[in-house]
Design a protein around this nucleic acid. Structure first.
Lengths: 159, 159
DNA sequence: ATGGATGCAAAGTATTTGCAACCTG
DNA sequence: CAGGTTGCAAATACTTTGCATCCAT
C-alpha cells in the first residue's frame, strides 16, 4: 500500500472514531509512514521536530498510541528499553531477526511456523490472539566485522 | 534438578566469581528457586519479606540481576510492565503461552519450531544466540468463564 | 581488615496525565 | 461553539545507583 493510500486510510479511521486531524498528527503520521524502519518514539520525535520544532514528545506518544489503537501500527520491544513501532499497513504479518551487535532488524515470515504455533495453541486449549517471535543473534555484516554474541560464559542450563 | 542441588550450584558460581553469600541472598535465592512460577521482583520481594521483613527491593533487584548474570535465571517480559524471572536450572529451554485474561503462563517446547528457527537464522546469515517466542491468547479456563481476547475491532491489516 | 553487600533515598528511564490554552469539525 | 488536542510540567511505574554502614571472608 502506498503512502497516500495509507494516509487516507488512517484519516478515515480517525474520522470514524471522532478523532480530529491536527497538524501535528499529519506530520507525525507522515513521518511514521515514510519510514519502513521500526521507530522508537524518541527517533520519531526527532524526525518530526525536523519539520515542526514545536511538537512535543507527549503528542508523539499520544499519536503512536492512537495508531496502535486503530490498528495502524504495531508496538514492539526488542530489548532496547524503549518500545518500537512499525506501520501495520505496509506489510503482512512477520517476525523479527534482531542483531545483538548493531541493533538492525530484519523481518521474515515462515508459514510452517505460523501453523505450528496454531497447533500448539490448540493442543493447549488456548484461543490464540497473537504472538511474538524474535530471533536474536549476530547479523552477517557484524560477523564479518568480527563481532560475537554476548554471554560467552554459559554457567548452567538444561536438566 | 532439586532444590539443594540448585542452591549448591548457585553458591559455587557465586564463590567462583568472588560474590559473597549473604543472608539476604540465601533467602532470596531460596524463595526464587522454591517457586516454579515466573516471578516479578515485586512478588519475589513480597515472599522474601515474609521471611525477613528488612530485605529491601533494591537487594532483590540486585540479586535477580546477579542470578541472570551467572546464568541461573532468565528474564522475561510478558507485557505486564514489570519483568518476570524464572529459574534456568530447573527446566529445559521452553517458550511461553500467555493468557491475556488471567495472566497465567504455560510453558511448551517444540523441537520442530526450534530447528526451523535455526534454519531461518542460517538462511538469513544470522549467528543465532537466543530467541523468544510467546503465544498470547485466552486459556481454556478463561474461555469457559466466557472471556474473549481484546482488540475485537481489527481496523486494517495485510496488503 | 578489606572490599563486596545492604538499606535508604535519590536519580534514572520510559511513558502517561492534569490542566489551561488552542484548534478542528 | 463544543469538545477533542496540545505543550508543559508534574506524576507514574519500574529499575538502578550513590553513600555510609555493615558483614562475609
Amino acid at each position: 500500500m502506498k503512502h497516500a493510500e495509507v494516509i487516507r486510510r488512517v484519516r478515515a479511521e480517525a474520522r470514524d472514531r471522532g478523532v480530529r486531524w491536527t497538524n501535528q498528527r499529519q506530520i507525525i503520521v507522515d513521518a511514521f509512514i515514510t519510514s519502513d524502519d521500526h521507530l522508537t518514539v524518541e527517533e520519531l520525535h526527532r524526525r518530526v521536530r525536523e519539520i515542526d520544532r514545536t511538537v512535543s514528545a507527549a503528542t508523539v506518544y499520544r499519536t503512536v498510541n492512537m495508531l496502535v489503537d486503530i490498528g495502524v501500527a504495531h508496538k514492539g520491544n526488542f530489548g532496547s528499553g524503549s518500545a518500537s513501532f512499525e506501520c501495520a499497513l505496509n506489510k503482512d504479518h512477520h517476525d523479527h531477526l534482531v542483531c545483538l551487535t548493531c541493533g538492525s532488524i530484519r523481518e521474515f515470515h515462515h508459514d510452517r511456523i505460523e501453523s505450528l504455533q496454531e497447533e500448539i495453541a490448540q493442543s493447549n486449549g488456548f484461543a490464540l490472539h497473537h504472538h511474538r517471535m524474535e530471533l536474536y543473534g549476530v547479523c552477517a555484516a557484524c560477523q564479518k566485522k568480527g563481532a560475537t554474541a554476548p554471554g560467552t560464559t554459559p554457567a548452567a542450563s538444561g536438566t
